[in-house]
Write a protein that binds this DNA or RNA. Structure first.
Lengths: 197, 197
DNA sequence: ACCTGAACACCGTTCAAGT
DNA sequence: ACCTGAACACCGTTCAAGT
């Protein structure tokens, strides 16, 4: 509040003439950036729609690094975000998922988007510096205490592995798993289903 | 700091005789609770090891709700957490994954654990109150603006869906996908692999 | 209609001073 | 060895007062 007002060359108190409180301000900011998410179309092929939505969410998170923690903890959701949820559920149920299943699918995909991007954003080293960082910290990773981390660091130092994980890896595992699940004739027995708790 | 010291019946400044700063305190706290994670054994069956680790992490997060945001943003990791990473990578490479693959697998699973649990912890309504909440807010979810959310809320009100998502749903999709991936003879072509970016 | 000064109830942290 | 008072540089927010 104080910093934002300062950037406008004004005192913090004047902001309260335009916005009820900090929470409402965050709400407005989130709705603004949420427009950068590619909203699924109801009649689109669901895998591709979910894929585009997930990738565009992640790119938005990378552009606006402050978003993920705020979006995940926001209680009241703005219209743009509600429209995204509606379109996502709509695309899934139009493609044969039940409302319950659509909820599980959206939850699983969003978990990956949030979890992956939060790890990515909080990782202290840039991908281009992984090799140097591994070389720097290798002496501190005791090969007797942490044999596998030591070996992994060696792989990065030697160039056998660049140390870069991929957002698509987990996302495609989920999408392929969901496709198999949908095509299964007898879903009840052989595939993951929500349990209690 | 001030609140913690107050709980000890002491002033905030005295804490700095026992701990360098807030960050070191958080480090010690995280290492303490990290001991509640079930660390994979190197020679165990990897799916079951990953499953137990993921579920125990989530249960720990639910017991100590302050952990996930701090753990994900912590730069320097304590010994207990390093040992968990080492054991997880160790279990995977012992079961036939390369070091690079083990890194992708751990990243994908952790993304799910973090993302799912953060959503779960921040959801404003308790599962037992979903039905009441849906009934309360149904009039505010315009069926013309948000037709699918409206229909979904109706399902919860009617009892057709209890509104409860499941941690295992996404986790088992990942584990099954990984198992298929591992059994594939020609991995390069038909399965998800890390790409650039 | 919009902005502000003073104030309140908070943070983490430092440092000289106490026992 | 441990604790503290005073101080510094921060927060979000309220409210009466100004233009």
């Amino acid at each position: 509040m104080r910093r934002l007002a300062g950037a406008f060359g004004v005192t913090a108190m004047s902001l309260y003439n335009h916005v009820a409180n900090k929470n409402e301000l965050i709400d407005l900011m989130l709705n603004q950036v949420a427009a950068e998410i590619e909203i699924p179309s109801v009649d689109g092929q669901w895998q591709e729609m979910m894929r585009r939505r997930a990738h565009s969410m992640r790119r938005m998170f990378l552009r606006h690094r402050w978003v993920p923690p705020l979006l995940i903890s926001q209680i009241t959701l703005g219209q743009v975000i509600l429209r995204d949820i509606d379109a996502t559920v709509g695309c899934l149920v139009t493609n044969g998922f039940s409302y319950a299943e659509a909820d599980w699918v959206r939850n699983a995909i969003d978990s990956h988007v949030y979890g992956y991007t939060l790890q990515e954003l909080n990782f202290p080293v840039e991908p281009s510096a992984y090799r140097d960082a591994a070389a720097t910290y290798l002496p501190e990773i005791s090969s007797s205490d942490y044999p596998f981390m030591h070996a992994a660091a060696l792989q990065i130092v030697s160039g056998a592995y660049d140390g870069v994980t991929d957002f698509s890896f987990g996302l495609e595992l989920l999408l392929e798993g969901l496709e198999n699940w949908q095509h299964q004739t007898n879903r009840q027995t052989s595939v993951p289903r929500p349990r209690s708790g």
